[in-house]
């Protein structure tokens, strides 16, 4: 059953990543991949809230499958992030490459921790 919810969530999450990426790029003309950075941080925060909520029994498992594993899983991406980092490095933008790797990991991790803490504060 959960596989259907995961698929449905992903059917929304993947196109959403594409559209958010376009919208962010249209506003930032820079070579730095802010679009991918944005979806990865936002998705990590939302998954944090869902997992934190599930841990205290406030979010049902079906919602975690739909919005967490499916939507957030497909909204966020490691392949795009990895390719961008390698391409930045290859194109001679070594600072951008290192900053992308460091900032994406730190910000997404921070967002996940804040999401879980927020959910625990809200629902416990």
């Amino acid at each position: 059953m959960s596989v259907i919810l995961v698929a449905l969530g992903a059917a929304l999450g993947a196109p959403l990543r594409y559209l958010v990426d376009r919208a962010v790029q249209a506003r930032h003309g820079s070579a730095f991949p802010w679009g991918t950075f944005t979806v990865n941080v936002v998705g990590s925060f939302i998954l944090g809230v869902l997992i934190g909520g599930a841990a205290v029994g406030a979010v049902p498992g079906s919602l975690v499958a739909l919005l967490g594993v499916g939507l957030c899983g497909a909204l966020t991406t490691y392949s795009t992030f990895g390719y961008e980092t390698v391409r930045l490095f290859e194109a001679g933008r070594r600072f951008h490459a290192l900053f992308n790797a460091g900032a994406s990991v730190v910000a997404a991790l921070g967002a996940a921790f804040v999401g879980v803490a927020l959910a625990e504060a809200l629902w416990s």
Binding site: I51, C72, L75
Partner: peptide
């Protein structure tokens, strides 16, 4: 691939 599951 997923960044959110990695972070969580």
């Amino acid at each position: 691939t997923t960044f959110s599951t990695y972070a969580i």
